[in-house]
């Protein structure tokens, strides 16, 4: 389960990292590059059912990660919650046959096919890639963990985007997200705007606007 707050950062000011957040202390910081490739059907059936299929290459990881995310729902604290399954894979699939084989091998097919009503012989294709320079900051309070990430995202089309995400690393830490949201608002004020949707949808809106009108 992924539970996170997502914001757009509307300022050219430096992206500050607070030493403390909702009573959590900053414990570790990392910086790395990410390339996310999203796969879907020709008519974006996964996207239309609110799901996404992503292969992430991260500069500080030796292997790519295949991720399926289910439809998200908004929580009262302003966070978004969705089912998420991540599987490390040995290489990035290059075509439809290979991605289908990979999904079946890791039993992800059973998860992603029913909601989008995908047939067994469906053709999945890469629908777009986004590049992201991320700084990730781990906050700790006892056994609870929160990850704050500053993303500088480059889409194939349109202006780059800066995003701030705070993810509860375990479900129990999610109860602190309302306090985190309050802290972030007081820290960044109007520079921070709640993101209306995630990065995958933003990519699709930019590349395939005809499917969103």
């Amino acid at each position: 389960m992924e539970i996170e707050l997502q914001y757009l950062y509307r300022s050219n000011d430096a992206m500050m990292v607070p030493a403390e957040l909702a009573g959590f202390a900053l414990a570790e910081s990392l910086s790395f590059e990410i390339v996310d490739a999203f796969w879907d059907t020709q008519d974006l059936r996964l996207r239309k059912t609110g799901c996404s299929l992503r292969i992430r290459r991260q500069s500080n990881l030796p292997h790519p990660v295949l991720t399926w995310k289910g439809p998200s729902e908004w929580r009262e604290d302003g966070a978004r919650q969705r089912e998420e399954v991540e599987v490390p894979i040995d290489h990035v699939p290059v075509d439809a046959a290979e991605i289908l084989a990979t999904l079946r091998r890791y039993h992800l097919w059973e998860l992603l096919a029913p909601p989008a009503k995908l047939e067994d012989d469906v053709v999945l294709e890469c629908i777009g890639e986004l590049k992201n320079r991320r700084t990730s900051h781990l906050y700790v309070q006892g056994l609870h963990r929160l990850e704050l990430a500053w993303d500088r995202i480059t889409y194939p089309v349109g202006e780059p985007e800066a995003r701030l995400e705070v993810e509860a690393k375990r479900q129990r830490a999610a109860r602190f997200l309302a306090d985190v949201a309050r802290d972030l608002t007081s820290l960044y004020g109007k520079k921070l705007v709640p993101a209306p949707h995630g990065k995958a949808k933003e990519l699709c809106r930019r590349l395939y606007p005809e499917l969103f009108t």
Partner: peptide
């Protein structure tokens, strides 16, 4: 491999 994926997006 990267080119194959970029080509899919371009052709779309």
């Amino acid at each position: 491999g990267d080119l194959r994926r970029a080509r899919m997006v371009y052709n779309r």
